[in-house]
């Protein structure tokens, strides 16, 4: 059973964070809020999202699992006004989620969770290099890199205490460095890995709205991007597998 009311903007922000990587997911509900963890079909990137009940203006739920067609839900967003209040309702053992706002009443048929990929295990991975920077700076450098290449290197120069992004195209390259005035070094240890911009562009669009993004890196290891949404009441983590350069 789920009965909740939420601001349209918060709902959109949360769904956008998931839809950057997957088109369907298993959404877990309990008395404290919602959560999901999903891996994209190629097993390259993962999204974890939690939305506390405080993110809602009203929230009441029992423990359950919903199969959500993200693409379908996104189609409805066009109808929602920015500050509309959205009410979500799912009866006990129901297979249709009722979404109502401004006089509209949608009934969305849910997916059978068993037909959706199982939740991946929580990642247990050591990524020692950690920096915090503004989401906007991060997204802008991703966009800049995409002009010259399809991949980007993210790294930390420990000696100089710099966080850098570099992209090499066939003929052009671009590099952006961030010093201590722009980046907070939680652990400025040497790190460098290469990532696909195809994924980062979609993730960046979501991260660009966050005040702060914590980036965790290793050497030829995945990157983790963690940030708050919904005014601090929601939390998103992206994990992206690297591309490995041959010698």
């Amino acid at each position: 059973m789920l009965k909740a009311t939420i601001d349209a903007d918060i709902l959109k922000e949360s769904i956008d964070a998931i839809s950057a990587l997957v088109t369907e997911c298993r959404l877990h509900t309990d008395e404290n809020g919602l959560s999901t963890r999903a891996v994209d079909t190629a097993n390259v990137a993962m999204v974890s999202l939690t939305l506390k009940k405080e993110a809602f203006s009203a929230f009441e739920s029992t423990k359950g699992e919903i199969g959500l067609d993200i693409a379908k839900l996104k189609n409805i967003f066009g109808m929602m006004g920015k500050n509309d209040l959205i009410s979500l309702e799912l009866p006990e053992d129901g297979h249709k989620l009722k979404v109502s706002f401004e006089g509209y009443r949608y009934s969305i048929t849910l997916l059978d969770p068993n037909t959706i990929r199982k939740d991946p295990n929580p990642p247990n991975i050591d990524l020692p290099g950690k920096v915090v920077l503004s989401g906007n700076d991060l997204y802008n450098s991703i966009k800049a890199a995409a002009v010259v290449s399809d991949k980007i290197a993210l790294g930390i120069d420990a000696a100089q205490q710099l966080f850098f992004m570099a992209a090499e195209g066939d003929t052009d390259h671009i590099r952006r460095e961030f010093g201590k005035s722009e980046v907070n070094f939680l652990n400025g240890i040497e790190a460098r890995s290469l990532f696909s911009l195809d994924y980062l562009k979609d993730m960046g669009r979501v991260m660009g709205r966050a005040d702060e993004v914590e980036v965790s890196l290793g050497i030829d290891h995945p990157a983790k991007f963690a940030f708050y949404i919904a005014g601090g009441q929601g939390y998103v983590e992206y994990l992206l597998a690297p591309r490995i350069e041959a010698d």
């Binding site: 190629a42 097993n43 390259v44 993962m46 990642p123 290891h221 597998a241 591309r243 490995i244």
Partner: peptide
């Protein structure tokens, strides 16, 4: 030059 890895290679 830059082979894409998958997440299961890391955990």
């Amino acid at each position: 030059r830059a082979r894409q890895t998958t997440l299961d290679a890391f955990f």
